[in-house]
Design a protein around this nucleic acid. Structure first.
Length: 500
DNA sequence: GTAGGGTTAG
């Protein structure tokens, strides 16, 4: 039947009679139903004798139709037929292929097979890939189609660089930075922040600080966020003194630390048991007309709880509460587990009640997908709490906590936590000398201490010894030249150093 | 096939 319809369709055109879009759709539908997607390609080949205008319309329609029906391969085949005939591929059909990231990749593979270059790859292809967790595909596409790229601007690159960093593909992120710069893009501090953050997350502190220092040279001033990233990692690694120096440095440079930056240090001090320092900063924060937030409250509470000083923890909770500042989910959890561990169940219950009425806690609980029928998580917990089943309530909350706040991310292979590092660091005068760059003193001190330091610290020193690069620019040049010379072993070593 | 879209916490 379909064959007859096709013949009729061709005959109509032959007689100069028009056909409309509706008719094309009906025809395509019938063909796919009876012969599958391949039938459409067959149709296109048979319709070679149509008037060129109609042939173009039918082909373009087929491409969109096939994509919609999930047959991108055949759509690409139709595209190839069209290109070979010199037909005009409309934007609509072109984009219907590129809309889907998988289709786009197959499409470009086909194009390469044919030995063609594409007109342009739309930025949306990269957006789609990047936002759908396929940043490596996007990266590969960029590297493969170097000369046929869309006009990507600094933000397009920045998003990709950040995603690559988040996926621990630091080397590729750096490579993309260099690629963008070769394309004439001037990267901004936002992109550098992503890279610095990525390096820190990978434990490559030396490289992170190297990049930080090189920012001055390339005339990109570090922002408040740059400092926040570095202060955070230093704090996490137990280098509180250095973190504090960076904090002071940013103030000297005229960058105003936000509550968020204060929080990093307050949290660091409180976790290290240096409550006095933490509270001093809290005071300073308020002097600077900044407001504590949920994180601040939680950090202070955590500090007192860690010290086992539940009176002080409760006291600060009520003080903050009086001023309209509540802890967040974790802050409440610190307080609750502290109270429970002392067997103070009644107080736990009243704190639990307040917790379960706190907006941010409720918001978090609402994100939990549970199948406890119609009940919401919040109602469920409140019910448990009111029944006096405190321990059970907290058990459930602990589950929630493990979902949203996975265990602290200390680097693997580091056998001990911040306490040990603190000892090491406090034992000698140590810090970022004002006259030197932050990195050079950091490295020097690392080397001095590598004999008695923990593995983590040793690693930095080793990294430093392996690395003979002075700045970001020469890093790129070095890596690029290694790759060009085919010295992949060396390049790999360099890459390994970055991706650890 | 635009314009607006990009970075930091336990």
């Amino acid at each position: 039947m379909v064959d007859m319809a096709i013949e009729l369709f061709i005959e109509l055109d032959d007689r100069g009679l028009p056909s409309d879009a509706g008719m094309h759709t009906v025809l395509l539908k019938a063909i796919v139903e009876e012969k599958g997607a391949a039938g459409v390609l067959d149709l296109i080949q048979r319709c070679d004798i149509l008037r060129p205008e109609l042939f173009d319309i039918l082909c373009n329609k087929s491409i969109s139709f096939l994509c919609k029906k999930g047959s991108p391969e055949t759509a690409c085949d139709v595209y190839v037929v069209m290109k070979r005939k010199g037909s005009v591929v409309t934007r609509k059909s072109y984009y219907s292929i590129l809309e889907d990231a998988n289709y786009a990749l197959r499409f470009f593979a086909k194009i390469r097979e044919c030995g063609w270059t594409t007109a342009t790859i739309p930025v949306t292809v990269f957006d789609n890939l990047t936002t759908n967790g396929r940043v490596l595909d996007a990266y590969k596409l960029i590297r493969d189609m170097e000369d046929n790229l869309p006009r990507m601007d600094v933000v397009d690159y920045s998003i990709m660089v950040d995603r690559l960093c988040k996926g621990s593909h630091i080397r590729k992120a750096l490579d993309l930075c260099e690629f963008a710069r070769k394309k004439g893009i001037t990267l901004s501090i936002v992109t550098y922040n992503s890279v610095i953050n990525g390096l820190c997350r990978q434990g490559c502190l030396v490289e992170a600080f190297r990049l930080f220092d090189s920012l001055q040279k390339i005339n990109v001033p570090p922002s408040e966020i740059t400092y926040a990233i570095l202060i955070d990692i230093l704090t996490k690694e137990g280098h509180l003194v250095d973190a504090r120096k960076l904090f002071e440095k940013m103030i000297v440079l005229g960058l105003k630390p936000s509550t968020r930056v204060y929080n990093l240090l307050i949290n660091g001090y409180c976790k290290m048991g240096q409550m006095q320092e933490g509270l001093k900063l809290l005071l300073d924060l308020e002097v600077k007309c900044l407001k504590p937030d949920e994180f601040t409250v939680s950090a202070v509470i955590n500090g007192f709880c860690r010290n086992g000083d539940m009176e002080a923890a409760l006291g600060s909770y009520f003080d903050f509460k009086r001023d309209g500042h509540l802890p967040d989910f974790l802050g409440f959890m610190y307080l609750l587990s502290g109270l429970c561990s002392k067997g103070r169940l009644e107080e736990s219950q009243s704190i639990l009640r307040e917790m379960l009425q706190t907006r941010s806690v409720i918001n978090l609980l609402n994100k939990v997908e549970i199948d406890v029928q119609t009940e919401s998580m919040e109602q469920f917990l409140f019910f448990l709490c009111e029944q006096g089943r405190i321990q059970e309530t907290i058990t459930v909350l602990n589950e929630v906590q493990s979902m949203f706040f996975p265990v602290e991310r200390w680097r693997t292979g580091a056998p001990s936590g911040p306490e040990k590092l603190k000892e090491i660091y406090d034992s000698k005068a140590f810090g970022i000398a004002a006259s030197k760059s932050s990195l050079s003193s950091y490295e020097t001190d690392m080397n001095i201490k590598s004999s008695d330091a923990e593995n983590t610290v040793k690693n930095y020193a080793e990294e430093e010894n392996r690395s003979q690069l002075c700045d970001f620019d020469s890093y790129f040049d070095h890596l690029a030249s290694l790759c060009t010379k085919g010295e992949l072993l060396e390049a790999n070593k360099l890459a390994k150093m970055l991706t650890c």
